[in-house]
Write a protein that binds this DNA or RNA. Structure first.
Lengths: 152, 152
DNA sequence: GAAAAGTAGTTGCGAACGCAACTAAATGGT
DNA sequence: ACCATTTAGTTGCGTTCGCAACTACTTTTC
């Protein structure tokens, strides 16, 4: 993939910047996670699961902002790799609880280490206080938009 | 187990927030652009073209952060809709210049109007000065990461 | 000025994804 | 109890996309 490029004429648009930064983040992640044979969605999914409790598909779908069908397929793929296992949820015959296998937990921890280093490097261009400000603004934007899209 | 900065389960992580905000932005765009039968990439592409001069596929690829093959396919689709037209670039036998048709220019302007209104609403949860700060931080992050990914 | 290296764009292929329609189980109203 | 509605998850299908391999043209090198 080509290294992302920025058109200087338009680069100050928040909409465009969000897009470009996201694409860059995604690209950097893919490079790292490729070492572990994981897609970004698979990696994010593994990190949402508490191995002791497990998690339902619907919950995963909400947290990952992916369709339920996509979660089903991701779980199947991770299952075939031996990283997750699905258990019946006793309290609800329709539901299933996805848990990590020993192998899954181990891989997740390894990937987390490398990912943390890479992420640290990529965010190192912002100071701690800048990062804090960014988080605050994004959080505000996120909540505002969530409300807006709901009402609409 | 607590990796201080990188635990993705942390809701306030800038990485996670970037993802969530991006998904929301993208979703909002799809809703608006659907009225015009355009995908977000198609819409962004139309907006990069100067109807008087045209633009090469490679340039479009760089500016849109999409692969050249994807640009080829997008151009084909837009061509079939009668929104763009490809001309030979006299100065280079390999290249072609993509230009807007009258119809494409008209549609772009209409879509721009509605998109601007929607975007305004979605960003209205931030004050002007907050937006400015956000732009500054994202811009810094974007440039830093671009440099980081290049060296890699 | 011929061979090598680089660049513009295309095509084949498979991966990730959303949506709509579906099954099966749970819930709620009457 | 019974039927309607909701909810958990799956499947079929079409779309967007990146990558690798390719053609055709251009630039560089010797």
């Amino acid at each position: 993939m080509a290294i992302p490029y920025t058109d200087l004429r338009e680069r100050k648009h928040p909409y465009r910047l969000m897009h470009d930064v996201y694409v860059q983040l995604d690209y950097g992640d893919r490079v790292v996670l490729n070492h572990y044979g994981l897609t970004t969605t698979q990696y994010r999914l593994l990190n949402l699961i508490d191995p002791a409790k497990g998690l339902r598909l619907t919950k995963l779908s909400e947290r990952l902002l992916r369709s339920k069908s996509q979660i089903t397929r991701t779980i199947v793929a991770l299952g075939q790799m031996g990283l997750v296992r699905s258990l019946h949820d006793g309290s609800d015959g329709r539901a299933q609880l996805v848990t990590l296998t020993r192998k899954g937990e181990k891989l997740r921890n390894q990937a987390n280490k490398e990912h943390a280093i890479s992420l640290q490097a990529r965010f190192s261009f912002l100071t701690t206080s800048e990062r804090k400000t960014l988080v605050g603004l994004l959080d505000k934007l996120q909540h505002g938009m969530a409300k807006y899209l709901e009402v609409e």
